[in-house]
């Protein structure tokens, strides 16, 4: 994995200096040179080269940047990378294995649960987090608990169909 964009050392004052931020991303330890104000989302996309996590609003209002942090779904745009040192981050690139898609990924394809695909990584990471939580009893619960992930293409019913299929299989 490429570590990109190490900023010109001269370009900052000492007190805000770059620090090495160790992040465990998809099972690998990555040391990024970051300033404190770099969000986890930007750290993933611009510094760790993992562009699967998407920026749809940068303000916690769309869910496109959802990743799993120690197994829980969070919004990577509303947290600083430095705040997640040593946490286990899973992004869409770490979902499933090299040889086999995660059941949710398969279900999303089968149910045509996306159109433009931009919200998809966030929807899938969020759905994994939701199934881990184990709080959804039925379709109405799933809809409510997935409402933090917007889909502008209007694939909503297909997304929920895909999640329900996997949820019912794993019970």
């Amino acid at each position: 994995m490429a570590i990109l964009s190490i900023v010109n050392q001269n370009s900052c004052e000492e007190e805000f200096s770059l620090r090495e931020v160790p992040l465990k991303i998809n099972g690998k330890l990555v040391n990024l040179q970051l300033r404190p104000w770099v969000s986890l989302l930007d750290a993933l996309r611009e510094y760790a080269g993992l562009t699967g996590t998407k920026k749809g609003c940068d303000h916690g209002q769309c869910g496109a940047c959802t990743v799993l942090c120690d197994g829980e779904r969070i919004l990577s745009c509303l947290t600083l990378a430095v705040m997640k040192e040593d946490a286990e981050i899973t992004t869409i690139e770490g979902v499933g294995t090299e040889n086999e898609l995660h059941p949710l990924q398969k279900a999303f394809i089968a149910h045509d649960a996306f159109q433009c695909g931009y919200c998809t990584p966030g929807q899938i990471c969020s759905a994994i987090g939701m199934l881990n939580e184990g709080k959804a009893q039925n379709r109405e619960d799933v809809k409510e608990l997935m409402s933090g992930n917007l889909c502008r293409c209007g694939a909503n019913s297909n997304i929920i169909d895909a999640i329900m299929e996997v949820k019912n299989e794993t019970i």
Binding site: I74, G129, G148
Partner: peptide, 9 residues
């Protein structure tokens, strides 16, 4: 309130 992700944070 908010969304599941935000409540987790």
């Amino acid at each position: 309130g908010a969304s599941a992700q935000i409540r987790n944070m």
